[in-house]
Design a protein around this nucleic acid. Sequence first.
DNA 1: TTCGGTTTTGTTACTCTATACCATGATGCC
DNA 2: GGCATCATGGTATAGAGTAACAAAACCGAA
Lengths: 165, 165
Amino acid sequence: MPPTTKRSARPHSDHDHANCVTDAIARAEAVCAERGARLTENRRRVLELVWQSHAPVGAYEVLERLRKDGTHAAPPTVYRALEFLMEQGLVHRIESRNAFVGCPQPEQRHAAQYLLCEGCGDAVEIEIGGLARKIVSRAAELGFAVAAQTVEAHGLCSRCQQIGA
Amino acid sequence: MPPTTKRSARPHSDHDHANCVTDAIARAEAVCAERGARLTENRRRVLELVWQSHAPVGAYEVLERLRKDGTHAAPPTVYRALEFLMEQGLVHRIESRNAFVGCPQPEQRHAAQYLLCEGCGDAVEIEIGGLARKIVSRAAELGFAVAAQTVEAHGLCSRCQQIGA
DNA sequence: TTCGGTTTTGTTACTCTATACCATGATGCC
DNA sequence: GGCATCATGGTATAGAGTAACAAAACCGAA
């Protein structure tokens, strides 16, 4: 694991996060409906739980939250839901944290990049113009065919810098 | 984990890999000597084992190999050595595989990028000109201070494409 | 509407990855 | 020689992920 990171250490709360969640669910429903993919109760619930914050959550954290609902879930339940959600591009996996975060742009497939704050734990999805293409083309020069990319930058967000992490 | 990957599935062997290993050890000794870092027997051995191939190896694979030497090692032994080797930039962690690979350029710190072949399992360290800087500067525009980067491209190397993976 | 196939979920039991914690030993410095 | 620092041993446990098989839900077609 890269530089020591405490997860969700000090989350900021300066926006109405409920909006993020309802918006994400609405878009997920739209996307699945259009694709004929089944957003079952379980899957929707897991998506909601992943969206509880902007910090990536571990599968077992999702599991705990599920259990607090009273449901009697086991790891495969969560992993299967996450797998489905990833296939649909509704959540992304943050490799350097073995955790998952909701995708704010599930309508179209994209190679996203992430800024991961070591202070508050938040993950911000960005798209650096031309970066994904640059990786693909440089790889191609070496004869390598890229199928997927992981781009994660670790550091401190502006607020955490101010707080004086 | 990204697209299903079998580790070290079909390693290619078209170079004298022994050279890679001895070279890596020699450079590690030089680097450590210069920095006053102690490359102990354990650490050297772990480095050697990581360098057994160009495919990233898991910590527990290193552990097994260590034990075949007759040494009676436990996980912390391996992780501690790996931690040291990472601090010294002698090995890098491949986040998307929870595995480790030797660094061919330990003399200077750098933000490396990796091409990870899903066929043979090999990891090739590359440096795409300007890419690391681009990430830092785009992050800076958003007020984010980058401390470390993870850039990993998954796909097929030229040989594995030919073989017809 | 019932049959039969596909998809989703439940359940158990593991495997693999990683670290906390405490004790012991080596090294180097003054 | 004494002492602090660094390195290792060893146990136990936490955290992440999957294999395998059984049951249930869903869906289209006869």
